[in-house]
């Protein structure tokens, strides 16, 4: 049984005791695609990642990676996968170079090949100068880059990244994004989880939005925004602890109104127009901001909660 997809999962379920982390999801990813799993913490992203990395077994459902079944061909599948887990789990006692050496050995690569690739990968991740340093002494961003270099040691066909930029400063994030673009251009299939909507919009050709173990929407980032949100959003803040009381006041100004603890969101086609109407009606918010709709709004619309809850 082979599908045209590089990875296909059907009715994937993961249970831990009574807790159902993943509640029957279907995903099909094509070769060369950059695919995202977007959702808040606890949405089931990491459990899904571990299953499609052929590390943990699904409680129910089937997965096919490279047309192979992870239950039977786990080692063969993992030989062709690169995994960048949420926790770096590097060998802190070893040097940068030896981390890569050992990881390459797990893939049965000859030492000569490992040496060549180590030079390339350290250059690629801008770690060449730190080759002989103990990993313990690296900064968070450097460790993350080393984890990515490690995940590329076996020249994977699919690179799976779980929250690749969480906890990084903006500069480190952009460097990482740049490296991921390059890999994508080289034809590597990328699978990324994130709870940063800008990251998903930047990196993913296509994504699924996950919430509480289920997929609630699927599509290209722009298409999702067009489908589930308006073109623009007006964010209003009032000097109050309770924004809820303003809800009824705004329904006439917008297609949809969302009330968050700290602000009110008006979903409109033209933000400046709407804001003018609000002011004209004699309402004076403490602050107002007009912006384009993002995946955050899609998520809010689909689940009623924000991504960073």
């Amino acid at each position: 049984m082979t599908s045209g997809h590089i990875l296909e999962a059907r009715n994937l379920v993961k249970r831990f005791g009574d807790f159902e982390a993943v509640k029957g999801i279907d995903v099909a990813i094509d070769r060369g695609e950059s695919f995202g799993f977007l959702g808040p913490n606890g949405a089931g992203k990491t459990s899904t990642m571990r299953m499609i990395s052929a590390i943990s077994q699904p409680t129910d459902g089937t997965i096919e990676i490279f047309g192979l079944d992870p239950r039977v061909d786990g080692p063969e599948i993992r030989r062709r996968l690169g995994v960048v887990p949420q926790e770096d789990s590097l060998e802190l006692e070893l040097s940068v170079k030896n981390n890569l050496l050992m990881y390459g050995r797990y893939f049965d690569l000859p030492r000569r090949v490992i040496r060549e690739r180590t030079t390339e990968l350290l250059e690629f991740t801008q770690l060449s100068e730190r080759a002989n340093d103990k990993v313990d002494n690296l900064s968070g961003g450097m460790k993350r880059r080393l984890t990515i270099a490690r995940g590329l040691m076996n020249r994977p066909e699919i690179l799976i990244l779980d929250e690749p930029t969480t906890g990084l400063d903006p500069q480190a994030r952009h460097l990482l994004w740049d490296r991921l673009y390059r890999l994508k251009r080289e034809g590597v299939t990328l699978i990324i989880t994130t709870h940063y909507m800008d990251e998903a919009e930047q990196l993913c050709d296509r994504l699924v939005v996950m919430d509480q173990g289920k997929i609630v929407a699927e599509g290209a980032p722009r298409a999702l925004i067009e489908r589930f949100s308006t073109r623009e959003v007006v964010e209003l803040r009032f000097a109050t602890d309770d924004h809820e009381q303003y809800f009824n006041q705004f329904t006439k100004f917008a297609d949809r109104v969302e009330v968050l603890p700290d602000r009110i969101l008006l979903y409109v086609n033209d933000g400046d127009d709407a804001l003018r109407d609000v002011h004209a009606a004699g309402i004076a918010p403490a602050s107002a901001l007009v912006r384009r709709s993002s995946l955050e709004d899609v998520f809010l619309h689909l689940t009623g909660r924000s991504l960073t809850d």
Binding site: P85, S89, D108
Partner: peptide, 14 residues
């Protein structure tokens, strides 16, 4: 503690 084995499981090792 160090979760060393987690990294090994992403490789062909079982």
């Amino acid at each position: 503690i160090s979760r060393t084995y987690d990294a090994l499981l992403a490789t062909p090792l079982e």
